Simulated assay, not measured.
Amino acid sequence: MRYLIIIILLFSSSAYAENSYSRILEGITPNSITIIGETHKRPEAIRFFQSLITGYTQQNKCLTVALEIASSQQSLLNEIIQGKATVTDIEIAPAIDHPPFRALINDLAEIQKQNNCLKLIAIDAGLELKTNRDEWMAIKLAEQVGQAPILALLGSLHTLKIVDWNPTIAKKEPYVAEILASEGHDIKTYPQHWTERTCNTRNRLIPADQPEAVELLNSDLFALLNASKPKAAINIIDGIVL
């Protein structure tokens, strides 16, 4: 009986993981932008993002992968792909930089060497650019919209399509997702929420129309903002990966 329980748990874990990214993969279509939100410096977030890339490219389809790296580093990214530089040479904001993130860049560069159908782009605004980061990233993503869909990994706040800011805030600056949605782009967003467990081997997708989604949205993201907490997650995000 003990071994049967273990086998059931293993299959259940696989089913949860499959459900978490298969439904997201179905929405990655030509002319679309999919943003996966992360809490920076979480290795689990990187692994989940990598699973999406692997799952999509195994279908022999082209994909553009966008990362929260200053766009001024694009030429260096290209040199890494060409073997003229290494991932240690690239400049990454300290709040984002951690070994799994650099490993992701290196893995994607290796894939692109063998597969021209995968494109890696840096979309963030560097310190040298005196501009709003979200506006800049939205511009860079919009420039890439085409037959090859875009899959981006950004901080989770950038996934919010609507924010009802406190009226006392004079300057209300929308996040990347809201800018792109207002321009009519086909955009889907999925912030991630990782629980603090010793062994967290399962993940699942909570659709935006589920009560649990708005609860997590309010406790995770809107708790950080000077804005009204929404009563529903629909139209704000497309789901949460738990």
Rank of each mutant, 00 (worst) to 15 (best):
Q112S: 14
S156L: 05
D97H: 06
I240N: 02
S72T: 12
F48H: 09
A177T: 02
L151I: 08
N116Y: 04
I121F: 06
C62G: 14
S71Y: 09
R204E: 00
I139V: 10
S228A: 15
H185N: 11
L108A: 08
N60A: 06
E91W: 10
S22M: 03
Y21F: 02
P207H: 04
E173Q: 13
I28Q: 09
L151K: 10
K140A: 07
Q114R: 12
K229Y: 13
D134H: 10
V87I: 14
S228F: 14
P211V: 04
R102F: 08
N200C: 03
T29Q: 14
S228W: 13
K41I: 00
L141K: 15
E212R: 10
E135L: 13
P207R: 07
E68V: 10
I111D: 05
E173L: 03
T34W: 01
E183R: 07
V214N: 00
L153G: 00
D124C: 06
N200G: 01
L154P: 04
A213K: 05
P43L: 01
K161R: 12
P230R: 14
C62N: 11
L216E: 00
L108P: 13
S219I: 13
Q210T: 07
G55S: 02
S75R: 15
Y3S: 11
K113E: 09
S12D: 01
K61E: 12
I234H: 02
I179N: 15
K119F: 00
R23N: 14
L221M: 07
Q50V: 03
P174H: 00
T29E: 11
P230K: 15
I123C: 09
D164R: 13
Q73E: 15
V241F: 02
S72L: 05
P230Q: 13
G184N: 11
R202F: 03
L205T: 05
S20L: 05
M1L: 09
C117R: 09
A233D: 01
T189A: 01
L120W: 02
W136Q: 13
T34G: 09
Y16Q: 08
L216F: 04
K171Y: 06
I53F: 09
A233F: 01
L118S: 02
T57W: 08
S156Q: 01
Y56G: 10
T198S: 11
N132F: 09
G37N: 03
E26W: 08
R202A: 14
N106S: 11
I237E: 04
V241D: 02
D238V: 01
L154G: 08
V163Q: 08
P207D: 04
I236P: 12
L52F: 05
A122D: 03
A233K: 05
L108G: 12
E173P: 00
F222V: 08
R47E: 10
L180P: 05
F11A: 09
C62W: 00
A181C: 03
V65H: 05
W165P: 10
L127F: 00
L10H: 03
V145W: 10
L10E: 02
L63S: 06
R23F: 05
K113P: 04
Q74S: 08
I36S: 11
A181N: 14
V87L: 04
Q210K: 14
S219K: 15
L129C: 06
F222Q: 04
E173M: 07
R2G: 05
I80R: 02
D209H: 15
I24L: 06
S12G: 01
H158R: 14
M1F: 12
I5F: 06
S13R: 02
D186H: 07
